[in-house]
Structures are given as structure tokens and as C-alpha cells.
Nucleic acid binder design. Sequence first.
DNA 1: GCAATATTTGTTTATTATACCAAACAACAA
DNA 2: TTGTTGTTTGGTATAATAAACAAATATTGC
Lengths: 97, 97
Amino acid sequence: MNKQEKYVLAAKTKVLKAIAHPARLWMVEQLAVGERCVCELVEGLKRDYSTVSRHLLVLKNAGVVADEKRGKQVFYSLKVPCVLNFMHCIEAVIKGT
Amino acid sequence: MNKQEKYVLAAKTKVLKAIAHPARLWMVEQLAVGERCVCELVEGLKRDYSTVSRHLLVLKNAGVVADEKRGKQVFYSLKVPCVLNFMHCIEAVIKGT
DNA sequence: GCAATATTTGTTTATTATACCAAACAACAA
DNA sequence: TTGTTGTTTGGTATAATAAACAAATATTGC
């Protein structure tokens, strides 16, 4: 395993880790339906803004979501819809366990 | 979010976390090519048996890999090939970052 | 200015992950 | 039986992260 390979592995791991959290996974699934403002996510998760904001930053840094400010609100959307395919795969894993 | 939903989220998260580690992700990618004995993985990762064995257990508990003892060796294989599709998706994420 | 929305920062606490060593175990060979 | 090889488990120390909330800081709309 050379440096290049290690780097790629680390990058992939970062994306996976970003999604590998109940709150963040929930948000990803919400965003798969359509964009959401932070306020909606705060309400759905029943966590305060700072917490949700941090989680969103993790997803954003991993390149999974995008944000856009419109008026007072910031809307988040799923940047990579293909992550959803994986959810189906994971559901298969769960059923097979 | 009810109990049922929380449970499903936790289950999915477990699978994701299992893969979200450089060593384990590397092994998953190896197993995607074909089954491997622990010895091969030990060699490739340059970690000792106890460490590799633990990582494999995490993957196994998550339902991602299967093991089969044949003679002295234990061979691991990828139980859910669809995880690989996700890797392509993730590669897309990485390039878009 | 004031209220509403969202982010950032600081800090604390809790959790977990990781790695190695040593010991146990299992299968086969001599 | 004994030795050898391959693998797993138990124990443990260290390191790394994660999670939560409070408080401070933008930014916008009225």
C-alpha cells in the first residue's frame, strides 16, 4: 500500500464516517426526499442548532451535502444522490444478519 | 422518530461504521476481488493477527463478510457485493470535493 | 433596534477505537 | 504425543473522536 492508496482510502473513509451516525444518516435520508432548512432538521432531530449545525458541517466537509442561503434560512440538499443506492444495499445486509 | 425507526437507523449505522475504517475498507475491497485467508490480509495490512482478527470480527458482526474454515485456514469473503457500487459513488463524492 | 435563523467556538464529558502482548485454541503433521 | 502453524480471545493502555449544550457572533427581515 503506497501513499496514494492510503490517501484514497482515507478519503473514502471520511465520507463513510460522515454518514455513519444516526443523526446524520437520518438527515441524509431526509435530504434525499428534498432540500430542508436547518430549522426543519433541528425540529426533526430534537437537538439544538449548534449540534445540528456541527453534524451538517461534517456532511458538508465530506462533500455529501451542499448548502444555500436563501433569505434568513439556509437550505441543505443532497449533493450525491447515489448514496441512497447504498442504503438499499445496507438494508439487504441488515435483513441478512 | 419512533423506536422502530431508531432501531433501523442504528442498524444501518453499524454497517457503515464497520466499513468506515481504512484497514477494514481495504479488506472489503480485497474481498471484492475474491476470498482471502486471514494470513493474506495480515500480510497486506502489516498488522498482527490479533488486530486483523478483531477488524474482521467487526465486519462479520455487521453482516458484511462471511468466514469459512478450510483446513488450517479461515477464508473470508464478501457477503454483500453491492457495497462495491457504493465505492463508485464515494469516488464520485471525492472527486467532487 | 429587535427578533429570528444559523453558525462558530469553547469546553466538558463520555465513548470508542486501536493496537499490541500474552495466552488459549484448533487442526494438522511427524 | 508433541510440535508447528494459523487464528481467536482477553486484557489493557493510549489515543482519538464524538456529542452535547451554552454563549458569542453574523446576517437578514421587520
